[in-house]
Design a protein around this nucleic acid. Structure first.
Lengths: 201, 201
DNA sequence: CCCCGGACATACTGCGCAGGATGTAGGGAA
DNA sequence: TTCCCTACATCCTGCGCAGTATGTCCGGGG
């Protein structure tokens, strides 16, 4: 840490959270090395263990304070749109045209962490489940609004469609990430657009 | 290893592969402990390293000789059916009614391993990608047959629908596994059935 | 009968890692 | 100014693990 940054506990903590998020994103939680986080942030081990009582606690804080806002921010626009289906299709097409590169290479950090840790550690599981539920319920609520407004077929179950949608989204990211298979991701997005159209009346 | 099983190289090798598959299924590849595999199989470390030159090589062999047949076996019936959509819907409903417990608890071993290793190790990546491609192409081919037979709408892209389908399947298993969330999995399956119906003319 | 190589068994090493023990410096309250 | 607690810094330790070195035994070919 540079001299200018000494003795700024909030900033140090935030720096650790952000560097940990990046490292976890690249390597996953288990493979994330504390030493790597420390090197990247310029913070020492003593400082880290002053702010967080264990690697696991650091991970939990990353979920609460970085990953959750990241997800909220990412999906807010689509979820709050008047017409979810149009917004989602637009979102897909935007992805198809411009840089989905970051997503392809590193995948969705939520999905990565969920797959790795949700089953193994209840602290992660509860937190990630809460994010997932909120996301899913947001979609379901938006679909219900769409049904009332006549944008969405009335015979689809919002809950089922929402679960299916998040499954398809995370599944396609997970499968596409691994090998930078742009073609696969494009095909899956196309299929998603087809599905979204089928929800129309 | 019991006395009766000594000096049977093929059987020893097979035993190792199967125990490794189970251990990997439970813990993932990285967290899979060779010592645990050895204890479960009753084989010693010398024997293991006689048959496989590294943990990674063991993992690759597990994919080739256990996981691939497991997947082939699992999906063959659906892929070869006359009417893919009916077969898939039936498959979903069978899952909904009887024990999806094993899948819920441990998830799909292909999906688990793909998420964990495909990006990190080219040996795993190539093998798993091949399985995925074969699966996806099987679905696409089946959809094309369905189009010729009039079971499937002619305006859907088989390639896109196949990619979307495998994404949704693996995504729902991945998300449902983590926390034994039966409700989520059921909703996702219901959504899947809805999607499958929408592929009908 | 010998002997040689494949099929194991046992004991050890080295490494990366999370985490702990202990030391120190800055800055605000009295 | 003194004091004291927060916010760090440094060094050490123990553990689990993959991988290795070396020994041994069985079974078949000559």
């Amino acid at each position: 840490m540079t001299a200018a940054l000494k003795r700024q506990p909030d900033r140090t903590r935030q720096l650790l959270l952000e560097c940990a998020f990046e490292e976890i994103r690249r390597s996953g939680f288990r493979a994330a090395s504390l030493d790597a986080i420390l090197e990247r942030s310029g913070v020492t081990k003593g400082a880290l263990y002053h702010h967080f009582e264990s690697k696991t606690a650091l991970g939990h804080a990353v979920v609460d304070e970085v990953l959750r806002p990241w997800m909220d921010d990412r999906w807010q626009a689509v979820l709050n749109a008047d017409d979810l289906i149009s917004a989602a299709i637009q979102h897909c097409e935007a992805l198809l045209q411009q840089g989905m590169d970051e997503l392809l290479i590193q995948g969705c950090p939520f999905n990565n962490l969920f797959n790795e840790m949700a089953a193994a550690d209840a602290g992660f599981g509860d937190r990630l489940q809460a994010i997932l539920d909120q996301w899913r319920e947001g979609i379901a609520a938006s679909l219900r609004r769409g049904q009332r407004a006549g944008h969405v077929r009335s015979d689809v179950s919002p809950v089922a469609a929402a679960a299916f949608l998040v499954s398809a989204i995370e599944g396609s990211m997970g499968l596409a990430r691994a090998r930078q298979s742009r073609a696969f991701f494009e095909a899956a997005l196309q299929g998603m657009v087809g599905y979204l159209h089928s929800l129309r009346p």
